[in-house]
Each structure stands twice: as C-alpha cells, then as structure tokens.
Design a protein around this nucleic acid. Structure first.
Length: 666
RNA sequence: GCCGGUGUGGCGCAGUUGGUAGCGCAGGCGACUUGUAAUCGUCAGGUCGGGGGUUCGAGUCCCCCCACCGGCUCCA
C-alpha cells in the first residue's frame, strides 16, 4: 500500500526508502563508500544478500568486507568460485561442502575415477578462479522445493545427501551434518546460488553480488577430510584457501603464517639445542639436551615450590602396573587402543601407565582416612605413556611419552567448592608467571558414553560451574565433551600472536573413588566416599614448554634461559677481567658464560643473539679501567656502555627473582 | 589409522633427459686480537631414510617399509 518503507540502521536512526528497495539500495542511499564496501547485510539479525528486498520496520545493518562477518561472506563466496573452477577443470567431480572458516575457507571434493589433487593443481585452480572473478559473474539466489533440488543435483551425491537431510532432519542421529555448514535453509525447501555461467551450488547464503568483489585470495594446501567428519565414510579431497578484503590484508595474513612457522617449537628446539626426537626411540618420544633439561628443571622446581606452598604432598609412583589396576579404573575398557600394549611377565600383564590417578587412589587407600586429613592433595610429576595414533603426533605438543604436573585432591563434598575456586586462582597465577595474560575456559559436560549416575554428574558439573562463576573467568559450555568419568574445566591461553592453546585441566570425579572403594571416616563416625579432583596445571611439562617456545618465539624470559648472560672480552688481554665479571654474575646467582676472543666481536655477538641470550656483555679497555661492562640486552635498540658490574648484576638478579617476562632493559 | 607431500654429511640446500655426489653454515687445526649481528686459510665429514627390483650402470625409474610435514579422525 504505502510507497515508502522505513528501516532502522544499527545506530538506531530511521531511514525511508521506496517500497521494494533492497539492502543494496539502502547502502547506496547512505553513501557511495558504503555501497562500494558492502558485501551483504543483516535484516533483523539474519544475514541476507544485498539484493534482498527490505520490509517496512526492518532493522538493517550493511556488512562490509573489512568486518569479520563481511570477510566470512567473502570467504564463503570465494569457496564457491573455487568449486566452480574445480568443476570446470575436472568435469564429473563431486563437490560436498565449502564453508568459511577462521582466516579462510575450504571446499571438499571427490574427483572422478578416484583422482587426487596434487599441489601442482593449486595454481591451475587459482588461475581459473581469477578468470571467473574477472568475468564478474553474479550470484543469483533461487528457492527450490526438495524435489527440485534433488533433480537439480542428480549427479551430485553429497549435495543430494545434504538435501535429504533438510527433508528429513536427522537430529541427534547426524550431529556432524550441521556443524560444518549451516543447513541450507530450513523449512521444507532449499536455496541455491546460480552464477551467470550456469554453475549452481546448494547454499544458504548470503553471497557477494558478483565475483568481481573477490580477488585477494590464495589457495594454501590440499588435505584429506572425511565426509561429514566421520572416518567410516569416504575420504574427500579438501582444498584450503584464504581470502581477504584487499591484497594488503592478504599479505599481512601470509606474513603471519610465516611468523608462526618461525615460532615452530620443533624448529626452535633444534636451533636452541633444547631437545630432539631420536628416530631410534620411536615416534613421539623426546630426549632433552642439557639446555632443554635446564629450562625444564627450572619449570619443575618452580612448580614443586608452588605446590608445596599450596599444601600439596609429593608422591612417586612407578611407570608400570598390572592390568587389574586399569581394569578397576576403567582405562582398559575405554582407552585400550590408546595404551601401549601389555608386556607379559611371570604370567601377568603389565601396562605402561597412561594416567597417574589410579596409583594415587592406591596411596589414598593404603590406610583408613579421617575427615580430618581432608583435603588430601597428592602431587606428582608423573610421566605417562599414551599410544597416540601416528598421524596426530606433533613435536612436544602431542607426544607419546610426557610428564604431567598431576595431582589428585581427595576431599569432602563440603570442601569441593573452595578447592575448585582456589585451584582456578592457582592456575591463573601460575600461567601469568609464565607470561600469559588472556585466558578462556571450557566447561565440558557429560558425554554420551559415561560411567556413574547422571545425578552425580549434574552435581559435579554444578560444582565446576560454580567455581568458574566465582573466578570471573570467561567460559564456554562444551556439551558432551567431558571425560568418561568426569566433567572438566579446560583452561586455554592466548599466545603472543593470538593463537589459543589448551593448557590446564580440572576434573571433578565421583566415579573413581567408588571404583576404588575409597572412604573416609566422618565426624559422625560413619564411612563416607570422598570426592576426587584431577588436575594438571601445565598439563604436560613438555607440551607447556612447547607452547612457551611458540609464545616467546624462543626468546624465553631471563629466569628460564639456560644462558642468561654472555661475557665477551674484546681482546685476549681482557680475558682475566671478563672472567672476573662472569664469576661476579655467578655469585649473584646468574647463569653466565664467556666466549674468548677467538673470532671477531661482531661474530660472537651475532651467535649470542641467534641463541637468544638475554644479556650480551662486552668488556674492553674502558671496562677494565672502570669496572664496567657494555650491556647489549635482547630486544634493545642499542647497547649501553659503561654500566658498573654490580649494578648490572643487581638488576638482572632482580629481574630473575621477579620472573619478569622480558629483559628489564629491553 | 586415513589422504597428500617430503626424506641428500650436525643444520640449511644444489644435484640436467639415469653414467659411480656438490655448496653454505656448524665442527677440527692454523693465522688474525678485534667495542656491538658473520675475519681469513686449511682439514675432516655423506653412498644419497631402509629394503627389494629394472638396467651394463640409479640419489635420479618401479615396488614395499620407516620417519617427518600438512590436514582429517582421535585426544582419558
């Protein structure tokens, strides 16, 4: 009826438009710059194409390419163009799903005749994509019935399967389906996008109006990926790519990838002579060299010190156990495939332990316990062995042998809340000491397969949630992600370049105490079942060191450095003074070494820098005369000359004592 | 485990259409004695991840295995 409609912009201001106006019209009405940057829109919170007609009273926001939501549209559209290119180049190829992901996109394909992509195919596909982009093909949305959709994709089994899923929502039978790509519209129909060349893809949208809006993209790698994430289903060929709003943003992203590569802890571990994985030992088994051993020992000593202060008692348990222990705990029933197989000795089966908890339960059970002893906190740097599948190993971050800073807290139901709250505080304090500032937690709840009673799980989950609420820590609910015996809180950190690492874990277990028949005598003189908290703060020492190396790009805080200072005499005749400086630093509790004047000073400085030594100390004529050193601190612009040795020693010793994350003079 | 890729002296790399392995760094030795990211010379070091095959002859072609890398699946 009315010729005009009124819509509301994100800032709350109303805007009148002719009836039938689209989101693109709105963008144009606001201004040419917005019209140029627009890639899609949201109407009442739902994402739509720019060609979407607006209704009266709609709340509309224009999505631009430089926002996260806008980039997601861009990436999704780029994925479609990639699919179009692949289907052009491999007639008869099947295509499956192609969503936007963080920093990019992928699309899964199945090539005719079981063919596979090779890395050489990526440039060919990219070239075809650039042609499509150059042609400025429009994305045209169409709505179809299920029947029409099935007919349209008669040669595309994966698309048909998705459509069937829309027709008959499987719900809980098919959890993987919706995860990767949102269902292509809900109720009884599907939507597609047709490019002007005739390429049609099943898709919920929205898309950019035309392929000419794309261009800052690059295909990165090919990989195998199971259809619907199910390893019993066919494995498809996945191509990963990245796409950005402009070449500059693309370039910055590619540089970030290079930077991440330079931070690779496996590479740093070799360069800094910290550890390696000898093939003779087998996959996933590391040895620590003297320097790596030193870093590790400092970490472990610090951990022990903090645990002692927090009321933990130290225990030691063996690496092996007879099978019965892991039958009692349930590990053999649940994780036998991920355990090293048994060795048979004297008619018994012995397994390397995959966890420490059953042994700690035995220590608890070694005597009758009174409520007065609780909470009982048993701590161990316990080395465990897990037979991880060969394809998942990843340096120290995923190894087959590793050491947990593991503890089990046995407590009464009344004590649970306070224990959990103080544990969360403990974790954050520890992680801050190691230079992490941003934390996120996941609360993982009862999985589909579990032991025990749902009511117990509910109580355990409530205890964890309560502790999180008290801590003020931001957290996400990870439903069904708990361990088979307990719900858990996983604490993640963000590293220096924004990557998220899972570090600590904290689990409330009502099951193992029952399986091991643990008990304590209460004030009522009756037997009660204790609760058991499993917790590891570093998680794995090895893994945590790997994360630290990536976080600091190998430039560890001074307190953790194997060599904290290196003294370099300018000439041989400064050697005696240099030795005096070195030993003075040693007396101040610092780890300092000395490199003689066998090669030019510049070369020695360069080597020290490559080894990321925090303080390079040069001593020459002036220093011998004045009792000073030249201080070249890691990360500083220029060296300082003439610093009194005592002053330097004090400053660095203080930095170490305070465990500062970077050289004080940096 | 699955898909793809890679595997040459401690490390980083070169090795044309198959004809019996090179370079840089690191290391040893010698010289140089040096004020803030690579001094010069010299020596030594590999049979080319392992095994099998094709060939007169294989680092270079084929097969099997192993390890590593990138993903997928998994992660108590």
């Amino acid at each position: 009826m009315a010729d005009q409609i009124t819509v509301t912009l994100p800032d709350g201001s109303p805007r009148s438009l002719p009836a039938g106006a689209t989101a693109a019209d709105l963008a144009a009405a606001v201004g040419p710059r917005l019209a140029g940057a627009a890639v899609a829109a949201t109407v009442d919170g739902a994402e739509v194409d720019l060609a979407h007609p607006l209704h009266d009273g709609a709340k509309v926001a224009i999505l631009t390419a430089d926002s996260e939501a806008g980039r997601a549209v861009l990436r999704h559209s780029t994925a479609h163009v990639m699919a179009q290119a692949v289907l052009d180049l491999w007639p008869g190829a099947h295509f499956a799903i192609g969503p936007a992901i963080e920093d990019g996109f992928y699309y899964d394909f199945e090539l005719p005749g079981g063919a596979r992509f090779s890395p050489d195919d990526l440039p060919r596909i990219e070239a075809r994509m650039r042609e499509i982009v150059g042609e400025g093909q429009s994305f045209v949305r169409e709505e179809h019935t299920i029947e029409e959709g099935l007919a349209l994709f008669r040669d595309q089994p994966y698309k048909r399967e998705i459509i069937e899923g829309v027709a008959h929502p499987a719900g809980e039978d098919d959890p993987g389906a919706a995860a990767a790509e949102p269902a292509p519209v809900g109720t009884g129909g599907i939507s597609t996008y047709r490019n002007s060349s005739g390429f049609v893809d099943l898709c919920r949208g929205p898309h950019v109006p035309s392929t000419d809006r794309l261009g800052a993209f690059k295909l990165l790698r090919v990989a195998g990926a199971y259809w619907r994430g199910d390893e019993r289903r066919p494995q498809l060929q996945r191509i990963y790519g990245t796409a950005w709003e402009c070449d500059k943003a693309l370039g910055e992203y590619l540089r970030r990838l290079e930077e991440a590569e330079e931070r690779d802890h496996r590479r740093l571990g070799a360069e800094l002579d910290l550890f390696h994985f000898p093939p003779e030992l087998g996959p996933g088994l590391a040895v620590f060299h003297p320097k790596g051993g030193l870093v590790r020992r400092i970490m472990e000593d610090y951990s022990r010190q903090e645990h002692e202060a927090a009321g933990y008692e130290f225990v030691y348990t063996p690496h092996l156990s007879k099978a019965g222990l892991f039958e009692t705990s349930g590990h053999l029933e649940w994780f036998a495939d991920s355990m090293y197989p048994a060795m048979k000795v004297e008619g018994a089966s012995y397994y390397p332990k995959p966890m420490n908890c059953p042994m700690h339960a035995l220590i608890y059970r070694a005597q009758t316990r009174s409520y007065r002893e609780l909470p009982l906190r048993l701590f161990e740097l316990g080395t465990v062995y897990r037979f991880e599948r060969s394809g998942v190993l990843h340096g120290l971050l995923r190894a087959r042998g590793f050491t947990q800073d593991d503890a089990h807290i046995f407590c009464t139901p009344d004590q649970l809340g306070d224990e959990l709250a103080s544990l969360l505080a403990f974790v954050l304090r520890l992680l801050r000491t190691f230079g992490f500032e941003e934390f996120e937690a996941d609360l993982s709840t009862r999985p589909e397969r579990f032991i025990g009673e749902p009511a117990e799980w509910d109580r355990a989950e409530a205890a964890l949630a309560g502790a999180l609420d008290r801590s003020g820590l931001e957290y996400h609910l990870a439903e069904g992600e708990g361990a088979y015996y307990a719900p858990k809180i996983d604490v993640h950190v963000r590293d220096a370049i924004g990557r998220r690492w899972q570090i600590a874990t904290l689990q409330v277990d009502f099951q193992e105490p029952a399986r091991f028949e643990l008990a304590y005598t209460g004030p009522d003189n009756a037997l009660h079942r204790p609760h058991m908290i499993h917790r590891a703060l570093f998680g794995s020492i090895e893994r945590f060191l790997g994360v630290l190396l990536e976080h600091y790009a190998g430039a560890l805080p001074t307190w953790l450095c194997p060599v904290q200072a290196r003294v370099l005499p300018v000439r041989d005749d400064h050697r005696a003074y240099a030795e005096e400086v070195r030993s003075q630093l040693g007396r101040a509790g610092l780890r300092a070494d000395l490199v003689e004047a066998g090669e030019p000073l510049g070369a020695r400085i360069r080597r020290a820098k490559l080894e990321k030594v925090p303080y390079v100390l040069v001593v020459g004529d002036e220093d011998v005369a004045g009792g000073t050193v030249g201080v070249n601190a890691r990360g500083s612009e220029r060296p300082r000359r003439g610093v009194p040795v005592a002053e330097l020693a004090d400053k660095v010793a203080e930095e170490v004592a305070l465990r500062r994350p970077a050289p004080a003079w940096g």
